[in-house]
């Protein structure tokens, strides 16, 4: 991970997910690298969240292979139970809605995420109760990591606030910080910018770019806000009705006729094309 070049992290091969007769994902293949933000976009119902659910073990794919490479070791995610994916393959995710532990403090939210580490060191709390030095050391390192992320998201001053009382944008970033405290190799974010105002959205972008640059992990990002996608992603995968219709650099994807058709639709669709078109155009303007 210390090397600066982009190394392959996740390989999705021929992923298919069927629910009865409904094909949610149909033979999708793509790859995501370390030190890259891979955006997954597509109209509603394209299968983006289903893809995440396959990655984190909520669904077992009908067909296909999800290979994650971390520290020169391969993990086949489709064969692992959910908690092993977090623990061994180190995939972290957030949801479309905020799911913080809202009645715990900000700091506690970040410490819970380091639970495995602490629990092992504390010999299931016994050593922790006795206050053995080895445990103290691990506990200190957990608090240090939490502080590092608190600094990053500017919440150090509010470390002892209840998480549920933070403003919306802070809660979003706290969720990402919590996911980062599990020390993931792959971070999956499901619409992190939804409902953020422009300033909060910009702060989120900075946070994600920092994670990419400094921590060097790979990020998978589901996002509807095209300006966010165009600004921060290195690689865009477009899904439509469960199929992959484009894959490449943001610039190339934006001009892809298939993508334009999927988003703007043909004449009889009811997809609110104007709104999305404006988004795309606004993003294009900002880029130029």
């Amino acid at each position: 991970m210390s090397a600066l070049q982009k190394t392959p992290l996740l390989e999705v091969q021929h992923l298919t997910m069927r629910f009865g007769g409904l094909v949610a994902i149909d033979d999708v293949s793509f790859a995501a690298n370390n030190r890259e933000i891979t955006a997954i976009i597509g109209p509603n119902g394209a299968g983006k969240t289903t893809l995440f659910n396959c990655l984190t073990g909520f669904y077992k794919p009908t067909v296909g292979c999800l290979k994650l490479t971390r520290d020169n070791e391969d993990y086949l995610l489709e064969r692992m139970p959910g908690h092993d994916i977090t623990k061994h393959a180190r995939v972290a995710r957030t949801f479309q809605n905020i799911r913080l532990f809202s009645r715990m403090t900000v700091l506690e939210n970040l410490l819970v995420a380091q639970h495995n580490k602490l629990q092992r060191a504390s010999a299931f709390t016994l050593a922790g109760l006795l206050g053995l030095p080895a445990y103290k050391h691990v506990e200190q390192s957990a608090v240090d990591l939490a502080r590092f992320w608190l600094d990053r998201i500017n919440l150090t001053a509010r470390a002892d606030f209840e998480a549920g009382n933070l403003p919306y944008g802070d809660q979003r970033r706290l969720e990402i910080a919590r996911a980062m405290c599990t020390e993931p190799a792959l971070l999956c974010l499901d619409e992190p910018a939804a409902g953020l105002n422009p300033r909060e959205s910009a702060a989120l972008n900075d946070l994600l770019l920092d994670i990419r640059e400094e921590i060097g992990i790979g990020i998978l990002l589901i996002e509807h806000d095209m300006s966010v996608v165009m600004r921060i992603s290195d690689h865009v995968v477009v899904l439509d009705y469960g199929r992959k219709i484009a894959d490449g650099e943001p610039e190339a994807v934006r001009n892809d006729p298939e993508v334009i058709k999927a988003y703007l639709g043909e004449e009889d669709t009811e997809e609110l094309p104007d709104v999305i078109k404006q988004d795309v155009e606004a993003a294009a303007k900002e880029e130029n």
Partner: peptide, 23 residues
């Protein structure tokens, strides 16, 4: 303690607790 945090986290959201590595 870490054990208590784990209890409280599971009490609030078991799925999310599992996702951040709590058994």
């Amino acid at each position: 303690t870490a054990l208590g945090r784990m209890q409280r986290a599971c009490e609030q959201d078991k799925l999310m607790a599992a996702l951040v590595g709590v058994n």
